[in-house]
């Protein structure tokens, strides 16, 4: 509702208007930011979930039952420690004279520091994939735990090999967990402005940075609110489309 108003420095004009949305359409910068945010959030989601699935699979299928909660505890600890500090340390790790570059140079693998890992979208993806790891692992783990192990044995007994058993039994049954973790990573990622600001550089800024700037620096809260509404709507639409597609895909099988 707020996004339909206009703000002129400190006074607030409460006549409803679509101007803020018109400004979004007129200004290519905002659309570019939104498009970039969606792409970054999408890649973060793909990377995080792909990295998380084997871990969840390992803990669920290979770790002894009494050790499982220890593993989960180990996985969740980094998530609970200060977010700002963690993001800042990724800057230290990925930086020009950071840990990765120093190590690779000392090993003689590279001659000059890699520059494609900091102050660009790659850095944002790596850092966020780290930050949201437990969010992705836990739902998949829960889904894998629910799978009746005798189904897998049945599939093997009926002559499927390990890979086909995984593809035709385990994966479809784990899909609800995968869908949940995709959503739980994708949706909050859009709203993050700390990581883009600290490690993203000019190419890595996202829509949330613009919302923050509009609210706190430029004093144009209504435009910020309009951007927030637009971001929220696009995320919701994409999520719904994703849920619909996976439903359809699972039913078709």
């Amino acid at each position: 509702m707020f996004s339909f108003w206009t703000q002129d420095f400190l006074s607030l004009d409460t006549t409803p208007t679509l101007n803020n949305y018109r400004e979004f359409l007129a200004e290519p910068l905002y659309q570019e930011l939104l498009r970039r945010s969606l792409i970054i959030a999408g890649s973060v989601t793909v990377v995080t979930v792909l990295l998380a699935f084997p871990i969840a699979y390992y803990v669920s299928f290979y770790v002894r039952p009494e050790r499982k909660s220890l593993w989960l505890f180990l996985i969740t600890i980094p998530f609970w420690t200060s977010y700002l500090i963690r993001v800042f340390l990724w800057r230290v790790i990925l930086g020009f004279d950071g840990v990765v570059n120093t190590a690779l140079m000392n090993l003689g693998l590279i001659n000059e520091p890699l520059t494609f890992i900091l102050y660009n979208p790659n850095a944002v993806v790596i850092t966020l994939a780290h930050a949201f790891a437990p969010f992705a692992i836990l739902p998949i783990f829960v889904a894998l735990e629910r799978i009746d192990r005798s189904l897998l044995e049945a599939s093997r007994d009926l002559g499927e090999n390990a890979f086909n058993t995984f593809r035709r039994v385990t994966l479809p049954l784990a899909m609800p967990g995968v869908v949940a973790s995709v959503l739980i990573v994708f949706i909050p990622t859009i709203g993050d402005y700390v990581t883009p600001r600290l490690v993203g550089g000019p190419e890595g800024l996202m829509i949330a940075n613009m919302i923050q700037t509009q609210f706190l620096r430029l004093n144009n809260a209504p435009l910020g609110a309009a951007l927030a509404v637009i971001a929220m709507l696009s995320v919701t639409l994409i999520s719904l489309a994703f849920i619909w597609l996976t439903r359809k895909y699972l039913r078709a099988r």
């Binding site: 990295l51 084997p54 871990i55 699979y57 390992y58 803990v59 299928f61 290979y62 002894r64 180990l74 996985i75 980094p78 420690t81 500090i85 963690r86 340390l89 990724w90 230290v92 790790i93 840990v99 780290h130 790891a133």
Partner: peptide, 28 residues
């Protein structure tokens, strides 16, 4: 209990990835 092999190795590598910032923090 089946052999974990590569997956176990991956799990350990992943934990290192998760803990990297926390391990480096006290160094500095």
């Amino acid at each position: 209990m089946r052999r974990s092999g590569w997956l176990g190795l991956y799990a350990v590598a992943y934990l290192i990835f998760l803990y990297a910032p926390i391990i480096i923090l006290p160094l500095f």
